[in-house]
Every structure is written in structure tokens, then in C-alpha cells.
């Protein structure tokens, strides 16, 4: 169970701040709604630990995690773009999610190949991100997310700009992940994404 309580943040200056307050159970998906600039990305950055909140708490399973560094939080993020290290090939990009120093067992390597195949990217291990289309890149990012098996997925417009077919495929992947117990925080402009994936809504 993810609990976000009275989480406050404001950028410097006289801009109004934000306050976030919600809970999310395992296997559930919450959609964050709001126009551009309403704080969707800010919230995901606060959760990921890339911004630090002015007040309030974030807990996972009853434990405070808001003072932990990003690498100790139970999250995996997928953004609209820039999810991959451009100078590293697909297998390395995914592998670094499983072990940060790429110490992979044979078994783990096999799982990477299997997962790639399952999203229609069989044999893409040695390709560089630059050689892939936008949809293929997002699929690689999602494969890494799944193999990392962190309990919470932070998705920031993960499917925006992809074609219909790619989106359908990724919907399936995410639903399967949700069914296996992952909690998902989804920020998306797209009503179809929200309808397919979300169980509850948070309006900003």
C-alpha cells in the first residue's frame, strides 16, 4: 500500500504550491488528471525522489520512504521519452535495471531475450536505442520495468505519441503487470489510457 499524505511542494518564487494526498493498493492503478502544468510530473518526480518535498510523507507498506534516495525506493519510472541510455544497446539498457553493474546470470540474460520476444522485439539485444522507433523504445523501457519487478510503476505519459497498434500491445503488458500485483501511478492526457488501465482518479 502506497500512502501519500499532505505532500507539499513549491518551486522557488511566488508560484502557488501543490499538495498531494492519496493512497494506492497493490494491483491497483490511479490516474492523475489535469492540464499541463497542473503538477503531474512534479508529483511523479517527488515520488521518484528526484525532487524533495517541503512537507508531508510518502510511505510504502507503513514505512516512511520520503527521505530515501531514488535507488532505495520501490519505484520504477517510465517517462514519455529519454528512458534509455542512448550509448548502450538494448540488452545492456535492460540488464542495468536488473543489476546496476550488469552482473547478469545466464538465466537473467535468457529472461531478457524472452521478454523482448514477448513484446515483438526478438533479436533486438544488440541494437542501439537510436536505431529503434519510438514505440520500440518504449517497449524496451517497459521490459526493463517489468524485469526489475519493483512493486510500484510511475508512468509519465508513457504511451503518448505512439501509434494505435503499439499502444494496444503496451496496454496488454501493463494490465498483465497490474494483475500480477504491481501498483501503477499513471499520468496521461489520453482518456483511453485512463479508461483501460485506471481504477481510480486523482484530479489536480
Amino acid at each position: 500500500m502506497l500512502e501519500v499524505r499532505q505532500l507539499e511542494f513549491r518551486y522557488t518564487g511566488d508560484q502557488p504550491g501543490w499538495r498531494f494526498d492519496f493512497t494506492l493498493a497493490r494491483g491497483a492503478c490511479i490516474a492523475i488528471n489535469g492540464p499541463s502544468g497542473s503538477g503531474k510530473s512534479t508529483l511523479l518526480n517527488l515520488l521518484g525522489g528526484f525532487l524533495s518535498a517541503d512537507a508531508g510523507t510518502i510511505s510504502w507498506d507503513g514505512q516512511r520512504i520520503d527521505s530515501l534516495p531514488p535507488w532505495h525506493r520501490p519505484f520504477t519510472s517510465v517517462f514519455q521519452e529519454h528512458n534509455l541510455f542512448e550509448h548502450l544497446d538494448v540488452q545492456t539498457n535492460i540488464g542495468l535495471g536488473m543489476h546496476p553493474g550488469l552482473r547478469l546470470t545466464k538465466d537473467q540474460k535468457a529472461r531478457i531475450s524472452d521478454s523482448l520476444a514477448s513484446v515483438g522485439l526478438a533479436g533486438y539485444e544488440r541494437r542501439l536505442p537510436g536505431d529503434l522507433s519510438g514505440g520500440q523504445r518504449q517497449r524496451v523501457a517497459l521490459v526493463r520495468t517489468l524485469l526489475r519487478s519493483q512493486p510500484v510503476l510511475l508512468l509519465d505519459e508513457p504511451l503518448t505519441g505512439l501509434d494505435e497498434q503499439a499502444r494496444k500491445g503496451l496496454h496488454q503488458l501493463l494490465l498483465a503487470q497490474k494483475a500480477s500485483g504491481s501498483a501503477i501511478v499513471l499520468a496521461s492526457h489520453d482518456s483511453e489510457d485512463r479508461e483501460v488501465l485506471a481504477d481510480s482518479q486523482l484530479n489536480l
Binding site: G48, P70, W71, R73, S77, L96, G97, G101
Partner: peptide, 9 residues
């Protein structure tokens, strides 16, 4: 940020 989250330190 990505590297931080993945613990590539």
C-alpha cells in the same frame, strides 16, 4: 535520474 533510480552508482 534514470541512473539514480536504477542504482547505477
Amino acid at each position: 535520474n534514470l541512473a539514480d533510480q536504477l542504482g547505477i552508482l
